[in-house]
Amino acid sequence: MPSSITTLGFDADDTLWQNEQFFRASERHFADLLSAHANIDDLSNRLLAIEKRNLDLYGFGIKGFTLSLIETAVEVTEGQLPTSVVAEILAAGREMLRHPVETLPHVRETLEQLADQYRLVLITKGDLFDQERKLAQSGLGDFFDAVEIVSNKDKSTYERVFSRHGDGAERAMMIGNSLKSDVVPAIEAGSWGIFVPHELTWVLEHVEAPVAEQRFRQIEHLGELLPLLAEIG
């Protein structure tokens, strides 16, 4: 085991504030719009396939999601998509981009207690403007020593970020709701990976928990982070 932890990295969406629930609500509305052309399961499968195909082009976030909705609608209607449906999809995307930020329980008080003891870094992926908007509206920005909005989260991301803003990956901990993006690659980089499950997690973020790893832990909410840090030392 290395020396003590000096840097804590936090994911944003569904770790600090609600996010996935707005995607699910928009997808339900989308299913209603296209109900005459496809059943909900087929539509969901088609949308997921198109989102996966488009990730390398659009990245993560609401704008790419909205474009994937339109592409799916064009496909299931065989090119006969009414312009009124396009307008409704675009309106739903704009509404998501304007939705007020809802912070999750225990977030503010936990960050407040940690800010004087550790170097805090926000590490999030997605659309730059939207992530900046949500951080500003959350009122949590002052707790962080650095903010990194990245296109992807992998081993090299954590090596780079924790070297730039901390004492290296081995003295860092990453906390988030995605095993695939927040936990597994952070552990691969040499950091601790702390899994904080959210009731809704996008299917493309699902992987097996690395339960055999010494540096893996799971907590139920951020209120359990301080006792965990005290335990690890």
Score class of each variant (00 low, 15 high):
residue 146 A to M: 02
residue 17 W to S: 06
residue 124 T to N: 11
residue 92 A to C: 07
residue 217 R to L: 05
residue 161 V to L: 00
residue 143 F to S: 05
residue 101 V to R: 02
residue 47 L to F: 12
residue 188 E to T: 03
residue 41 D to P: 06
residue 122 L to Y: 13
residue 99 H to T: 12
residue 100 P to S: 06
residue 214 Q to D: 12
residue 200 L to W: 03
residue 25 A to R: 13
residue 180 K to A: 11
residue 218 Q to W: 04
residue 27 E to G: 01
residue 25 A to S: 06
residue 48 L to K: 10
residue 157 T to V: 10
residue 91 A to N: 12
residue 83 T to F: 14
residue 120 L to G: 00
residue 78 E to F: 14
residue 214 Q to F: 05
residue 56 D to M: 09
residue 157 T to W: 12
residue 29 H to E: 07
residue 61 G to L: 07
residue 207 V to P: 07
residue 138 S to I: 09
residue 74 V to N: 12
residue 148 E to I: 00
residue 28 R to M: 09
residue 149 I to W: 13
residue 183 V to C: 01
residue 62 I to W: 06
residue 29 H to G: 01
residue 219 I to T: 08
residue 67 L to A: 11
residue 177 N to G: 05
residue 14 D to G: 01
residue 73 A to G: 02
residue 200 L to E: 03
residue 124 T to D: 08
residue 134 K to R: 15
residue 135 L to H: 03
residue 51 E to P: 01
residue 172 A to D: 00
residue 199 E to A: 11
residue 58 Y to P: 04
residue 143 F to Y: 15
residue 83 T to A: 12
residue 213 E to W: 00
residue 134 K to I: 00
residue 43 L to Y: 04
residue 91 A to M: 08
residue 41 D to A: 11
residue 111 L to H: 08
residue 173 M to G: 07
residue 84 S to D: 15
residue 182 D to N: 06
residue 17 W to T: 02
residue 201 T to F: 01
residue 164 R to S: 05
residue 77 T to R: 10
residue 22 F to A: 08
residue 199 E to M: 10
residue 73 A to W: 02
residue 165 H to F: 15
residue 74 V to M: 14
residue 212 A to Q: 15
residue 3 S to D: 13
residue 71 E to R: 14
residue 132 E to K: 15
residue 17 W to E: 06
residue 94 R to K: 14
residue 71 E to S: 13
residue 10 F to A: 03
residue 222 L to D: 01
residue 1 M to V: 03
residue 183 V to R: 08
residue 12 A to Q: 09
residue 146 A to S: 14
residue 86 V to L: 15
residue 12 A to G: 13
